[in-house]
């Protein structure tokens, strides 16, 4: 294995931000979705049940997965965004950057290894979340039909697109030399996404398209999201990765 990748994997294995992030997404999202789903299915008359009923109209496994997908669309961006900010920003906060200069392994390859670790971790986390939601649904007695499989693939794709949108946080954390700027940018992005979605301009905003596609703005809005709009996160992530690697290649250790 490449030395930079081995180094980054070692750090990620020890990092609470990766461990807790995986638990929040892979376990927390299915647990929360199942709790909401059961509230509606059991038909209570509490305010929480009434609120959940507006989100969940389809009491099948596809409906449960759809609910989980809506929670995932925010959770994955927040979790991977925080992990990316930490992974890149900590090198500055912990005064580790000078040690990455004047060594046989180029700095850009250390940064590339960080992206590989983040991508692999996000992939495992999203797939685990989908599998645990399906298992939860089966335990509730729901059927794994074609619609459920279709929705499961849909939320896996949207989850991975959401994870890709965390790449700009790596750039901001590198450029501003710390993890807080990345996390602040992440919060700002979430707020802007809410505003743009509220005024109906969300589908062209990469951070909103996947959530809308998953039904966050209702079925009508979901059907209007085009393939181009849905895939906008890919060029955003690619540009952020290229800019980050270029920054790491050229930056000074001041």
């Amino acid at each position: 294995m490449n030395a930079a990748l081995e180094f980054e994997l070692l750090k990620a294995r020890r990092a609470g931000v990766f461990r807790w992030g995986a638990i929040v997404v892979a376990v927390g999202v299915p647990a929360l979705s199942i709790a909401f789903f059961e509230l509606v299915r059991l038909g209570g008359d509490s305010p929480s049940a009434a609120k959940a009923a507006t989100m969940i109209t389809d009491l099948t496994l596809a409906g449960l997965l759809g609910t989980a997908g809506q929670v995932l669309s925010v959770a994955i961006l927040m979790t991977v965004g925080i992990a990316a900010s930490w992974s890149f920003g900590r090198e500055f906060v912990d005064d580790a950057l000078p040690a990455l200069f004047a060594i046989a392994t180029p700095r850009w390859s250390v940064a590339a290894a960080k992206f590989v670790v983040l991508a692999g971790w996000a992939l495992l986390t999203v797939i685990s979340m989908v599998i645990l939601t399906v298992i939860g649904g089966l335990l509730l007695g729901l059927n794994l039909d074609t619609a459920a499989v279709h929705t499961a693939s849909r939320i896996a794709v949207a989850g991975l697109l959401g994870a890709a949108l965390a790449a700009p946080m790596a750039l901001v954390s590198s450029w501003r030399r710390g993890y807080l700027p990345g996390i602040v940018t992440l919060l700002a992005v979430v707020v802007v996404t809410q505003l743009l979605t509220a005024v109906g301009a969300g589908a062209w905003f990469p951070y909103a398209a996947a959530a809308l596609w998953l039904g966050m703005g209702g079925a009508a809005a979901a059907n209007q999201v085009s393939v181009i709009q849905l895939l906008l996160p890919l060029p955003v992530a690619a540009l952020a990765v290229i800019a980050t690697l270029s920054w790491w290649r050229r930056a000074e250790a001041r």
């Binding site: 030395a3 930079a4 081995e6 180094f7 070692l10 750090k11 020890r14 990092a15 912990d94 005064d95 580790a96 000078p98 040690a99 990455l100 004047a102 060594i103 046989a104 392994t105 250390v110 250790a253």
Partner: peptide
């Protein structure tokens, strides 16, 4: 080289830190 402060990956052990330095040197 060692410039100013030693690198601080607080979560790694001493052995892992030194091993990683050797690996990063090829």
């Amino acid at each position: 080289h060692l410039i100013e402060t030693p690198p601080r990956y607080g979560e790694l052990t001493v052995a892992e830190s030194v091993y990683s330095a050797a690996r990063l040197q090829g």
